[in-house]
Design a protein around this nucleic acid. Structure first.
Lengths: 122, 122
DNA sequence: AAGCTAATACGAAACGTTTCGTATAAAAAA
DNA sequence: TTTTTTATACGAAACGTTTCGTATTAGCTT
């Protein structure tokens, strides 16, 4: 599953907030940029048809839930991105990311631990 | 400058091969997927108008050159990608990338060195 | 019950990107 | 010189995504 940019924004709301109605999602989206209610509705309907979301229709308003995990989605997107933008070289991407972004010492430590783990594998 | 996917493919050819005619670029692109000559031509004309490419019109066929560096372009794309897919967390992206991709010991070493550098900065 | 509010469904317009057909010109081949 | 090949330019169709107007239905309020 490769969500589009708009779909990703909706998924992120659901990942952060848990199950939401269309209105709730739309309110969160509108904090950043004006989005019409029916726009969000339509997108979420499409995402439901694609299987990206599940929903409960019991109540007056449907309640939607993300049907893909944030980690799995990020993995998919990253895979594609490394391929297109970095011609498959994950290490080049890592170097760029570390070089141009601020990372806390704690995060750097975590990364170091991960490096150890990877190198210790036979 | 944020090149589209197709534009990126063209840039990659030019980064690898250096200055090329439309035909040369098109031949490289066709190795992977069928692309009509005029399609490539049109795209490169658009990229020229956008300033992504420069060209020399002296000869019978124009010779195009990338007008943005691979590194700068990757930085731009990465910036955007971290923002949209990883909500700004470069370290999460790094962890994911390291975890799910094969990296050679030499590359891991390079990354380690970069970590040292970053941590030593005041 | 009648009117108001808030929800879903749906089609189609709007937008950006990609693809290609066609016109035209210039060089190369005959 | 005439024909064939190979360029560029350009407009518009095709495609996917996003946006929104409108119809319809269900619950709330009076």
């Amino acid at each position: 599953m490769k969500p589009t940019d708009s779909e990703l924004k909706i998924l992120q709301v659901l990942w952060q907030e848990g199950p939401c109605t269309v209105r709730q999602v739309n309110e969160r989206l509108t904090e950043n940029r004006d989005v019409g209610y029916t726009t969000t509705l339509k997108l979420m309907q499409i995402m439901y048809e694609k299987g990206l979301l599940t929903r409960v229709e019991d109540a007056r308003s449907h309640v939607y839930k993300a049907n893909v995990s944030e980690e799995a989605t990020q993995a998919t997107l990253l895979e594609r991105f490394v391929g297109t933008a970095f011609r498959g070289s994950a290490s080049k991407l890592v170097m760029q990311a570390l070089g141009s972004h601020k990372t806390t010492p704690a995060e750097l430590d975590e990364i170091r631990k991960l490096l150890d783990q990877i190198e210790q594998q036979p």
